[in-house]
Amino acid sequence: MAIEVRIPTILRTYTGGAKAVEATGGSLSELIDDLEGNHPGIKGRLIENGDLRRFVNVYVNDEDVRFIGGLEASLSDGDQVVVLPAVAGGA
């Protein structure tokens, strides 16, 4: 069984252009490792120094994972994961 992961435009170079891919894992951390196995390079765009990158948002069933355990957020089959880069900048 699988978890749907929505991929933002800027990371679709890792998924052959696919807007969504399937992956498995009992936690976000495991899911990202599984993604990396099929889409090498994508993990480094999501994780830095063992934590989620500050300007990458990941949502599980519409909840920002920062509020539900971060990389340890638990996942089940049928969950939907959305990855969105922050829209941010500064003078």
């Binding site: 920002d64 922050a86 941010a88």
Partner: peptide
């Protein structure tokens, strides 16, 4: 920065 919930 867009608020993360509003961004989604």
């Amino acid at each position: 920065e867009f608020d993360s919930t509003e961004l989604l």
